[in-house]
Nucleic acid binder design. Structure first.
Lengths: 200, 200, 200, 200
DNA sequence: CCCTAAACGAGACGGTACGTCCGGTCTTAAT
DNA sequence: ATTAAGACCGGACGTACCGTCTCGTTTAGGG
């Protein structure tokens, strides 16, 4: 059927996707993430909150995890642009402070926890999660590489490790919840990473 | 299942706790953690695999997460003793290599993922997880403090942050699964942490 | 489906009803009734089989039951004309044999079952069914009244009951399916009804 | 598994079926059948009304149709015992009046309609329905055979046909709903059947 | 001879019910 | 008293249809 040439030639004549429903679903997911703990995040709950049939969710997303990730990945990419302050310290501070602030947001924290949770026994949720984190790591790496080109990090600095340390701290605290992600912590982390990266 | 020879050999013990059942439950949990993905880790699954009634699990553990944590925490504490090589570099290498090796074990990795997963919407699982990680962080902190006392780290080094960076990398890679926890990575991490901690 | 040659040959007819689509829908319904059990009879199924949009069905019929009844009612009225052999026995035999033969047809039997099924929780389907059966009962009653006028039945014979007995046997066997509607059964039924009706 | 000899040898030690739940489910089904039309009969509805988990229904009955049939078949067998008045006319009147009265009961009528409905596209519901009707036909046949042995029906009377006519009228009127099942109708039907059966 | 309104195919939409799965509790009979 | 077995309530899951609602296309017929 997908090989049907006539099918490919005919663009799409059916009713189009309802953008309002899409937004309502993502917004409902965000709301519920923020309330996470109070009420569990359920496909039925999302559908009800969004005023939408369950099938409309399953039509466009393979699982509620895809919805949740979709709902927050807009945030992350919009709210944490790759900064350009001229110095590595400035860029890194901006980026990591922004990331920490984002991860403190109840919805985002809820989503990260939910994704990590599901990725364990759901291959597909794992793929989604890896895709999402990969994009975030690439952004941070971009910041570091710029600093490296400017000579603010040693030429042989282990950027992959630095990136994993930064996001490691973030995820570890979000998931385990033993301590908060303060802005002061972000600053100390920045100092530490630069110290590591500039040591020959 | 009914053909399991070990099963036939484990008789009821009447009114005192049946140690064989305890072991069977923990072993079943470990087995299932190792097969994670293939068969789901369910209370019923654990009970069936162990040849045990569900109530026997709930009688001795408050939830399946307690079982899982119980099943692996023996490992962690037995396999990663606090080393004493005389140098911070040696101790840290031993500890982090050991931790990484432990976390690569399928059962342990499965348990970490499962715990992180559940801690999100289950207060009790969260407490268990925080208790477990707290003990591990204390062990690593002990190693660092010893080095600090020996002058191998600056007196004002941010040990809390160093600990979170180390475990952050471990958990981040285990949970997201974008890259493996190699021994080489452990060594590079050790170098980074010492560089960071010894910078004034 | 897209390879259906008839489909390509059925162009839009603009603002008047497309007779080809009407036929395609009725034919699809008949086909599906004949295959009942294999594929479920669904509005979507009918639409797909007919190569038609669902709305085209709902535009012209109030429900799928109306479609189904429309699809088979042609049969019944065409195939079982009110006979005129000169004797009650002859007429009744012709009529009941014809009715039984019709009800043995897979499509018709499927439609009767489907209608009876739906009439239970769908007022509108019930009305359609009563309208359909009313017309069939009137036809049989016509046959009986003619015989009564000729003196072949007692003047006070309970024609309503005789009609219900005849159609009762037919529907009972179709719906319950414990025994087939053979021509021999039709003959025995005719004999019984005449015996009953001619007894003073 | 069912061939496992050890399994057969071990009697059954688990918790036993909760009779109260069984009754609550059947009663809820009956109540809902009586209200049929107002609210549709749903597994969830039955479960909720009975204060029972859905799984408890599916554990013991393969479908809601089995529940419904179970709920009413007690009635039929209890309320319409095979009568023994000494004459065929008396027995038949008692039996058919009883059957008509039973079929007028809202719950029973609802169940018959529901079963007929489902039997169309559900093989298993069809088998249940055939089993149920078979038992009822056997009871009526017993009444007729007794009359035949007493010489009240011709030795070659077509008992199968007489039975199908009686139940045919009942089902036809219940399902199509064009006319009620009055006691007067029962009496006229009895007269007609005896007239048929006693004609040589 | 264009322009519009109806009919069409496609298919997304809000709902309702389905049958399955799991968590955590409770009950039985056996040890 | 503890065990294996397993029934119980509750609640989320993902699927299947229903009947409605747009879309963009096609064409007959009125201006």
């Amino acid at each position: 059927m997908s090989a049907d040439p006539e099918r490919a030639a005919r663009p799409h004549t059916g009713r189009q996707r309802n953008e309002a429903a899409r937004r309502a679903i993502l917004d409902a997911a965000l709301e519920l993430l923020m309330e996470a703990g109070r009420s569990p995040i359920t496909v039925d709950t999302i559908a009800e909150r969004a005023g939408v049939g369950k099938q409309t969710i399953y039509r466009w997303w393979p699982s509620k995890y895809a919805v949740v990730l979709d709902a927050i990945s807009g945030h992350a990419e919009r709210d944490i642009p790759i900064p350009d302050t001229g110095t590595l310290h400035g860029d890194l501070t901006a980026f990591i402070r922004g990331s920490f602030r984002g991860a403190c947001d109840a919805a985002t924290a809820g989503a990260l926890r939910l994704m990590a949770a599901e990725a364990q026994h759901n291959t597909q949720a794992g793929d989604l999660l890896r895709g999402f984190t990969e994009r975030r790591r690439a952004a941070l790496r971009e910041v570091l590489e710029r600093g490296q080109r400017r000579g603010e990090l040693a030429p042989d600095a282990d950027l992959v490790l630095l990136v994993d340390q930064a996001y490691g701290v973030l995820w570890y605290r979000v998931l385990v919840g033993h301590a908060p992600l303060t802005q002061a912590l972000a600053d100390r982390l920045v100092r530490g990473l630069i110290a590591q990266g500039s040591t020959p």
